[in-house]
Design a protein around this nucleic acid. Structure first.
Lengths: 323, 323
DNA sequence: TTGTAGGCGTTATCAA
DNA sequence: TTGATAACGCCTACAA
């Protein structure tokens, strides 16, 4: 690897001059500049990011912590973060926390040691624990906004109301909500949205709970269908649960959407892979990531962001599991 | 952030001594060691990874290039890479190449500038282009082994034979193969496996081609079912295509698996989300990533690896789309 | 307009 | 057993 020194020698100037043309600051004659540029090309010189980081205490890297990249919600988010980071010249360091505060802190420490310029945290572990180098900005994604930290979420409450309203409009009379885990803020917001909408319509309802994974959802679904036979509309707290219910319903010969309508939440890709395709409340997943990255980068670069809390709108996607 | 200097001052010794206790090399008295350890704790000192990297020309980071983390095959791979890297003290830098050689090279350059210790490349762009700092090891994942580079793949050829054999065993008489794009090595290997198996059984067959995405697959499927009505078994080059065909078949009222059996390839998570669940040839996705990381780390640490080419076995998973 | 030199935080060499 | 010190590659005063 060629160094600045090599370039300087090749061009017959000092390293300072090379640095000047590289960073376009300070005076440098046309002549010198040309020589330097030629030398750079000839040697295929690329500045050493590590040395730069050491000097600037800044690395042009951002850290991204997700609970589990294997969860279909997060790849799209990660993709967005990477895309926009790249545009602004930032690389992304990835960490899976499994929603575990200790692992989260481990990554935070690692990130600090690497001089990452900022971090995006998603997931639901309590953020009381998080300790980061004082002036490293953090933005929190898809998590409660009870904190002081800049936050980007989608409007889970309103989304849940949309879901419930849709079911009612489509003629469902006996509606159930399968809520997600109580530790997860977004699940709670969706629950509240459901309740408020249904009560405003003076309807009765049923609540069950399931973890956000397929096996759990199927188990809950079996028990559910054994117990309740009159239900003709289900709003599930996310698409995974919805698909679990859909599968079990199909297996039991329940006609979808004629006898039973199902609405999910998230808008992940596999909603289009099942048949009938899943009606769902889509979060703007890519946008969440993109907005979070842009916000973070503004924070990093000390530009005053217009806002520091974003709550993005959800969108109703009507497909085959509603009439 | 406390530096070594601070620790040295606090402990009343020189930075050299601090360095010695940190790296456990060289002589240092019990007494000094204790003082240093205390100072480290008191100041909550963490060594600066960037300075270390600068000195050692090594960063304890590995670069991972995937075509698109959004493609359901890669998150599990990435997770495996991250898990085992973490165990050995390596962090992972992620890049999406979109199968584009130029983007790939961009990441490679970035990685070089950051002193990454090794890189794992997946996807299908030609690797003639790849140029990396001479002694940075690379392992290639899920790609042809026509190269000199250390490679980890699964046995696509044999997997395709398993798929075909299964269809035949289950009584399919008129079998089609929906092959993947011709630029993709694994698609070609699967194609060959299909052909060889079917010819050994003296059966006739039909070949169609589809890109590896749902929309394309559905389109191909519609045209396919318009044209061919006798087909009772389809082996699809990956699970996405298989799900596309399944959806269209279901929509057309074709009984699965009674009238038509479908076998996919990959074993990704959504195969269990559809109903009937997808029968498939599973690649050991997590293992692929884990094996690749371990191999890479051995290469990085100059341990002689036992082998440099791995071809992992696939596994037949019989579910609902076969009898 | 250009070059010299010191420092970013660590490590390793060499004297003491 | 310990401490100066040079070096990793880059950047920025400061001097020339």
């Amino acid at each position: 690897m060629a160094t600045m020194r090599d370039v300087a020698n090749e061009a017959g100037v000092s390293v300072a001059t090379v640095s000047r043309v590289l960073n376009k600051n300070g005076y440098v004659s046309q002549e010198s500049e040309l020589k330097v540029i030629k030398a750079i090309e000839k040697l295929n010189y690329k500045p050493n990011a590590v040395a730069r980081a050491l000097f600037h205490k800044t690395s042009k890297m951002i850290g991204l912590i997700v609970p589990d990249i294997t969860n279909p919600f997060f790849p799209e988010l990660a993709r967005a973060v990477e895309d926009v980071s790249m545009i602004y010249g930032y690389k992304v360091l990835l960490g899976n926390s499994d929603g575990n505060a200790e692992k989260e802190q481990t990554y935070l420490d690692l990130f600090n040691q690497k001089y990452v310029d900022g971090v995006i945290m998603t997931g639901h572990s309590s953020e009381k624990h998080i300790s980061l180098h004082a002036n490293t900005p953090v933005v929190v994604l898809d998590r409660a906004s009870y904190s002081e930290l800049p936050t980007v979420t989608s409007d889970n409450y309103e989304g849940a109301r949309q879901a419930t309203k849709l079911l009612i409009e489509k003629g469902a009379k006996n509606i159930a909500h399968i809520r997600g885990p109580r530790e997860i803020t977004s699940a709670n917001d969706r629950y509240r949205g459901f309740i408020d909408e249904i009560e405003e319509n003076n309807m009765s309802y049923i609540i069950e709970e399931s973890a956000f994974n397929l096996a759990a959802a199927e188990e809950v679904a079996h028990a559910f269908f054994d117990k309740f036979t009159q239900i003709d509309g289900i709003f599930c707290s996310n698409d995974t649960i919805a698909v679990g219910f859909l599968k079990v319903a199909l297996k039991r010969g329940i006609q979808i959407p004629e006898e039973l309508q199902i609405v999910g939440f998230d808008g992940v890709a596999f909603g289009k892979m099942v048949y009938p395709e899943l009606t769902t409340i889509a979060q703007p997943i890519y946008d969440l990531g993109a907005v979070a990255s842009r916000l973070l980068i503004k924070l990093i670069e000390n530009e005053e962001p217009e806002q520091t809390i974003y709550e993005l709108k959800t969108r109703v996607i009507q497909r085959g599991t509603t009439r």
